[in-house]
Design a protein around this nucleic acid. Sequence first.
DNA 1: GCCGATTCTGCAGTGACTGCAAAATTGCAG
DNA 2: CTGCAATTTTGCAGTCACTGCAGAATCGGC
Lengths: 202, 202
Amino acid sequence: MSTTSVTDDACGLRERKKRETRRAINLAALDLVEEKGFASVTTEEIAARAGVSARTFFNYFPSKEAAVIGTTAEELESYAAALEEAVDGESPLDSLRRILAGMLAPASVDRELRAKRRRILLGEPALAPALVGNNIRIENALTGALERRLGMRPGESLGPRLTVAVAIAAVRACIEHQQNGGSGRLERNIDQAFDSIAAGLR
Amino acid sequence: MSTTSVTDDACGLRERKKRETRRAINLAALDLVEEKGFASVTTEEIAARAGVSARTFFNYFPSKEAAVIGTTAEELESYAAALEEAVDGESPLDSLRRILAGMLAPASVDRELRAKRRRILLGEPALAPALVGNNIRIENALTGALERRLGMRPGESLGPRLTVAVAIAAVRACIEHQQNGGSGRLERNIDQAFDSIAAGLR
DNA sequence: GCCGATTCTGCAGTGACTGCAAAATTGCAG
DNA sequence: CTGCAATTTTGCAGTCACTGCAGAATCGGC
């Protein structure tokens, strides 16, 4: 009901507190997973370190995995907004390359946090299923955005969903390639992957 | 029931019995999910209907989801073998189109079972995360096969993994498109998707 | 300082999943 | 057939993720 702007305006104190709690739980989860490994961490521990009750933990996240991953609706909206706005001379695939690469790169702000996230999320094989599950959310958000950018109704054409799904798959393939000790460096491989796709795979 | 399936070498009696048990659990799981929905089915029920103890259930499948999905190592190997062998005039992407489409199409044998599987697996949103998780196994198997077909060492190049990941993503996008009430028919959309990819997405 | 609405918390319960050791079953050799 | 070793099944006890519910605490506006 409140007119929450695109990213964030410090509206009520109540809202801010919820964000802080959410963030605290996510950070506690990341730290604990780094210390002991995903399997050895209990939701009670995470809740305790975050300073909330065990029950409140599940008011913020539907599962232990989700608490570690910690993707917020705001992030999704922000990526969607970035894709929705067309940039001159940039194809949808180009935009996706830029946005998805940005999700992985440690940003100027929160540099260490982003790096830590990446290290922990990609270093825990037990999280892989949950991560690809999370990709579905991202795919849906980006598909809607691309449809709007192209002036289409939802589901009108297969095109937007296909483009988004392929782009996400490309990034995921590069990550997987890296984890299996594959050749090359991540950033470079992603560039190469998008070039291959634009040129037409065989 | 004694008709051992197509790709089955009747080795020992012990081995055959394990296969039958595995299959019985999978079928029981499918039936029960169809009757009551995934969330309302317990692993004990599945075990009971399959005629094994609750504990034995977990000797065959690591989770409730896996029991419903029921992908066997033999299936994976069979798909991998199909991809590994090169066919004249068929690019890797073409082979993947043929093989992946074959996984979805109700085969001549087991027609009803395949149809039922498809109906139940795709009709249960709760299974979506597990299904994409399962895709990782398929991706790894197919990536290895394509690497061998191209005479590459594992991880030598990003190419094979990228091709496989994109192909799987294409099929998944078509399914998702269908489930969201999107336009067109599945078979046709898959063809169109692979054509788009071969032509180079933008 | 008071009230309605939201949020937090404790409690009790269900059910997935695991390790362990005894019991049943199988394959094989004598 | 018959014991014997290996494999598989099973029951049991236990841990932990996750849920509904109802009361306690907190917040925002008056």
